[in-house]
């Protein structure tokens, strides 16, 4: 399958990319790892007249320590997020989720920021980013702005990144003393999540001090399982308490019905997977 013809530019700096983007008109696409964009271009579901490849901009790739947070470049490949020692030490939830994306070849090419801006409801990075309270750093013609995860995801394949803007980095707070797990439910290899749950738990003694939970594919955007988080705060660290709290996982969700399962099935999965994710994160 051959995409429609397009003009191509591969800038080497962010400033150059923004300038190209500003003068390219409406019919332009930014190319990150291309693991979602190239397939849809081959199917001609997207046929941009211009593609700006961000792959040569060194400043957009890599993970670095930023005090109380990590700064993850938007062009950092999934494989690097999954294996980076800083991510493993401070936000293991992201490493665990990145390791479940598609397959090894796709993880070598696909990028952290590309997947977040693509904002597929079944994608595996948005819910962990939401649960971890990430901040999205977006560059545009007027400079840089920062958007909280809760405001970043706006709908199906839709984010706060506007025309003429580029997601450059994601800032994720360090979590010390938290357990984390990403529980993904699929039926075949390399499948998108039917439902998945991202969970982080901070245990104090014999009780759960705090929990942060993100749900994948339970609405058009990732969701926080707020009712579960509230039920768990200060509760005893027992299977009974986790099971009771997890029953609230689907509250406020609005999952789609499709060939993989209807909405009621997804709501059932959300409770089951939340329990599994919490048990693993808490080390029960």
């Amino acid at each position: 399958m051959i995409p429609s013809a397009f003009d191509y530019a591969a800038p080497e700096t962010l400033a150059e990319a923004l300038s190209l983007l500003g003068s390219a008109g409406d019919d332009v696409k930014l190319l990150a790892g291309g693991q979602s964009l190239i397939p849809v271009m081959k199917l001609r579901l997207a046929d941009p007249s211009m593609v700006i490849d961000l792959g040569r901009i060194a400043e957009l790739s890599g993970v670095r320590d930023d005090g109380d947070a990590l700064l993850i470049g938007a062009m950092t490949p999934h494989h690097q997020v999954a294996t980076d020692p800083l991510v493993a030490a401070h936000v293991p939830l992201l490493a665990k989720a990145a390791a479940t994306v598609a397959d090894p070849q796709v993880r070598h090419r696909g990028t952290f920021g590309g997947a977040l801006v693509h904002a597929d409801p079944a994608g595996d990075l948005p819910a962990p980013a939401l649960a971890a309270g990430a901040t999205f750093i977006i560059a545009g013609p007027g400079g840089e702005r920062r958007v909280a995860a809760a405001d970043f995801f706006q709908g199906y394949f839709s984010t706060a990144v506007g025309d003429g803007e580029i997601l450059t980095h994601v800032r994720v707070p360090k979590y010390t003393g938290w357990g984390a797990h990403y529980e993904k439910f699929t039926r075949v290899a390399q499948q998108w999540s039917i439902v998945a749950v991202a969970a982080m738990v901070r245990v104090e003694g014999n009780s759960i001090a705090e929990a942060r939970i993100g749900l994948t594919n339970m609405a058009s955007t990732p969701l926080r399982a707020t009712a579960v988080e509230e039920a768990l705060a200060g509760s005893p660290l027992t299977l009974e308490a986790i099971t009771a709290a997890s029953a609230h996982a689907a509250e406020g969700s609005d999952p789609a019905s499709d060939l993989n399962g209807d909405a009621a099935y997804r709501k059932h999965l959300a409770a089951v997977l939340t329990k599994r994710a919490l048990v693993a994160a808490a080390g029960l």
Binding site: G34, Q35, I38, P39, P104, Q105, H108, R109
Partner: peptide
């Protein structure tokens, strides 16, 4: 490793 059908 990469999938060469998904790269220009």
């Amino acid at each position: 490793s990469v999938k060469s059908c998904t790269m220009f």
